[in-house]
Amino acid sequence: MGGAITDVAGVKVGHFTETRRPTGCTVILTEEGAVAGVDVRGAAPGTRETELLDPSNLVEQVHAVLLSGGSVFGLEAATGVVRWLEEKGIGFPAGPATVPIVPAAILFDLDHGDHHIRPDAAAGHAACAAATSLPPAEGSVGAGTGATVGKLFGAARAMKGGIGTASVKLGQITVGAIVAVNAVGDVVDPASGRVLAGARDTAEGRERIGTVDSILRGDLPAILQAGMATTIGVVATDATLTKAQARRLAQVAHDGLARTINPVHTMWDGDTIFALATGKSGQAGNMTVLSVMAAEAMAAAVLRAVLHAQAIAGPGVPQLPTASDFD
C-alpha cells in the first residue's frame, strides 16, 4: 500500500532531523483546524494536551499534532509549533489572544549518542517551516530518526525502526496514517507472519529470533528498563467527524499496530495514536468503513517505517541493521 497522510486534504507534514545525534520531530499541521481524538494504549506514555481531546471538554479542533523523539524533554518542541502557529495568527480565540492547540506525544531515543541533545522549541518551529502537502520522507527522519525495534533483549540486539506513512481512498473519502515505530516488539508482516525487523540472536547476528516465541519459551532478559520504547502516530481523514467519532477512529487505528507489532502496548511502550478529521470531503462517512481504512493505513505505515529505515552512524550510536540489510 502506498500513499501518504498528506493525501488527506487539509494536512501538511514537516520533519526536523537532528544532525548531531539520531533524534528529531515531526509535525502534522492542520492550519484550518481539525476535529481530534486520541487513544493511549501503552503503559509508559509521554503526552501533552491529550485531556483536551476528551469529547466532554471545550475545544473542538486542533491546529497541529507533534510527534517527537527525546523522551519527555522532546515535548518542548511543541512550544515551537505553538509559536509558529501564533506567528501565522492560527489558534483558538481566547480573550485578547489566539491560542494554538497542539497535542503531542514522544518516544524514547535517549540511548543513542549524547542524550542532552533532543528536539527543542527551535526544532518544532523548523518542522513547521518545512511542512508541505507533498508526501513526507520516510525511514530515519523526523521523529523516526532514532527509533529502533525488537528491544526486549537490549539495544545491541535490536534493529532500526523509523517513520512511515500510507493512505487508503474509498469513493470521496481518504484516510491516511503516519507513525514513528520505536517498539519493544518486532515488526511483523501480517500477510506472511514473517518478522521484518526485530530482536536478533546476538549483537552481530542476522537471525531474527521472534520476540514472542522467545517469551513463550521462557527466554527472558534479566532486566529491561521501563519506558525505553513507544510507537506514536496519527491517523487522519477528510471525512466529517465529531470528537467522539475521532476518538473512536484513534482507538481502531491501534488495530493496525496490533497486526504489525508483536508484542505491542507493553509496559515499556507508551503507544499513542491521535486521530484528525479535516472535513474537507464534506462527507460524514461510515464509521465501520472508516475504521477498516484507518487500521489498514496504520498497518501499512508501520511496515513502511521499517522498510524505509536507514542505518545511522555517529559517536555512541550502535550500528544496528535495517530490514533492507537482510532482505
Results as ranks from 00 to 15, higher is better:
G233L: 03
G282F: 05
F274E: 01
A246S: 05
N262K: 12
A226Q: 04
A197D: 12
M228S: 11
V264W: 02
H254V: 05
V187Q: 10
T242R: 12
A236F: 06
V264M: 05
R217Y: 00
A244D: 06
D255W: 01
A199W: 06
G227W: 09
R206G: 14
R208E: 13
P263S: 10
T240L: 10
D186G: 12
L249P: 00
E204C: 03
L241H: 05
G279T: 07
R217L: 11
G279E: 01
W268Y: 13
V235A: 08
D213G: 14
L224R: 15
I261M: 07
A277S: 13
V235Y: 04
A199T: 15
T240R: 13
H254R: 09
E204D: 08
Q225Y: 03
G285P: 07
S192Q: 11
E207W: 09
R248T: 01
W268K: 03
L224N: 06
D186Y: 12
A246W: 01
A277L: 06
R259H: 07
A284D: 14
T211W: 01
A191Y: 13
I273G: 00
D189P: 07
V264F: 02
D189Q: 07
R259N: 08
A191D: 13
D219N: 15
R206V: 10
W268T: 05
D219R: 15
D238F: 12
L216P: 07
I223G: 08
G210H: 10
V235W: 05
A222F: 09
G233I: 03
A203W: 05
D269N: 06
V234Y: 03
A239T: 05
I215H: 04
T260S: 15
